[in-house]
Design a protein around this nucleic acid. Sequence first.
DNA 1: CTGAAAGCGCTTACAG
DNA 2: CTGAAAGCGCTTACAG
Lengths: 352, 352
Amino acid sequence: MSKIASALGVSSATVSNALSGKGRVSAELVEKIRKKADELGYVPSSAGRALRTGRSNVLGLVLPDISNPLFPQIAQAMEAAASNAGYGILIADSRGDVTTQTQAISRLIERGVDGLVVIPRRGTRIGDIGCPVAMVDTPSTPGNTVSADHWEGGAKVARHLVDLGHKNFLLVGYDPASNVQNDRIGGMKSAFDRGIKYDTIWLETLLRERGEQTSLGLIDRVRDGVTAISAVSDLHALRVLTELQTAGIKVPQQVSVTGFDDLIFSPVVTPSLTTVHMDMARIAELAIAALVREIEHSKSEPNANTSQKQNGKAAKQTVTAEPSKVSMELMVRASSGPIILPDTPILNGKTL
Amino acid sequence: MSKIASALGVSSATVSNALSGKGRVSAELVEKIRKKADELGYVPSSAGRALRTGRSNVLGLVLPDISNPLFPQIAQAMEAAASNAGYGILIADSRGDVTTQTQAISRLIERGVDGLVVIPRRGTRIGDIGCPVAMVDTPSTPGNTVSADHWEGGAKVARHLVDLGHKNFLLVGYDPASNVQNDRIGGMKSAFDRGIKYDTIWLETLLRERGEQTSLGLIDRVRDGVTAISAVSDLHALRVLTELQTAGIKVPQQVSVTGFDDLIFSPVVTPSLTTVHMDMARIAELAIAALVREIEHSKSEPNANTSQKQNGKAAKQTVTAEPSKVSMELMVRASSGPIILPDTPILNGKTL
DNA sequence: CTGAAAGCGCTTACAG
DNA sequence: CTGAAAGCGCTTACAG
């Protein structure tokens, strides 16, 4: 910048004003400065700006588990939303661990992020950390900023299956301690009136005890009359689907299978998977917007603007706007349908 | 920092030296300063440090497509490797587009990254951009820094199938312009000696013409004698697997199916998918290490250290160390095996 | 419309 | 072992 200034014989203040378009510089000078800047390949120093303004224009994204198959959707949506708002995204993986999550948050803060989007490890409360935070979680979790309406999503799939005539369900969860999964299952159950039978299994313990690749014992369930299997994730639905198919059970003619999240493989398998889609772009926009609002706001805030928190008692800065609930969309695809072969023997003698 | 200094009646230089452990401060003073820093909840200003040192300790990660199912593995590995080396990761999605990729890179540079890991859009050459770059691609691409040996991976699966007695293959690619996919397919073919029949299909055009959810016409292939189908990604292998299963074809008894990348669902479907796994952690370590080496190096570099590139002619800074090839590991699982029912009619009359 | 000056928080020679 | 001083690159009142 000083190079541009001296090359043109103007002050760096003028260069700054010209380049930032504050409008206090004559049009022709602006033009000249722009040209020179291009010519010199000038790239403003984010460090200089950050130091002066106290804002880095970078946001941190803390994820419970980057290897989660939903992560691509999340990261992509957050990156796009942040980018539109003029922010960059610094990622941190809390690897499902609460202490790692805390460390990740500290590291991000040390790197000078202006705010944080946290997708918390189940049931984590984030205390005051002296910087704006948007939590993305379930509506049933207090203190969150925005989330999909997982309960409604569960209700939608279940109602769809009930309307198709199904009366005997198997609900498949993974982690019984997950708020999201409990909401989804709760929503499903809410769509069942009397006359509907259902049972719920949670995979986590099952798999830990019997090994990752164990059979889920679905054949027995089907023999006992289950005609619809609803999972809390497409990943589990896929597991169910392929296990049924391997056993020669027809989906959806004999059994309907549904999932959640519209993962990348869901439209691509045969039969394609009926699932519930969340509008991540919207969730991300809301989260980022809440964060940005808070950040802008604290700029004009007159008090306590010393970059350090005062004696460990940081001002409450969690985003306080009313939490937003984003509706979920049912995607009806081939894996769910009316029962076509209800009364024929299910297996031709041999089991798996 | 100045707060700590004045609270203790020492200079900020001493605080700096004490906190950074440079060892020019007496042990007791260091102790006192540390304590005071904790007490005040001191968080060093990354902006101040960056401005002074000229390093942000942040690396940019440019991905062709965040929604790629392999992305979680990549991002997780890069984040971990960077974190271990003391760097943060700023992400940017080039959305498969070359211009977006260029913009993404500029944005990252404007944010002051010290270096870039680029997983290029197929066939992109990144020119001199005035900052260290590590490219992660195929060994067959010139100028890349590190990559998995996709060719070797292809050879490994194919050899595995040949050893199992298969003699008639269908190879499934997606994008015929992808270097990675061509390497994988090339490797497969290299394992076929005379006596092996094979055909290759590329899904991209097929799907564009006939719609995303079209049948791949696998039944005809199998009827014509194909007993092994090898895809360049688990995603396509999954598509193949479920299409076969829906048609009543047994995997692996009648047809073996293999994929690539060991995606999250691969061990979980029935039958679990034989695939080729790449050691992302190692790839990430190598890429980050190359980058860090280059960054550290350019620190001591005496010449041209003016943060701006001189008249558009930036010094060549692409990481030049010999490109590393990381070996790929074959994961033999249930979806591949010897042919058990070679001569029985494949379909019981009805097709799909 | 333009410029001189101060200062954001840090680190690094340089003195003492 | 400790301190005074300079300066990284920017922006923002404040004068003119």
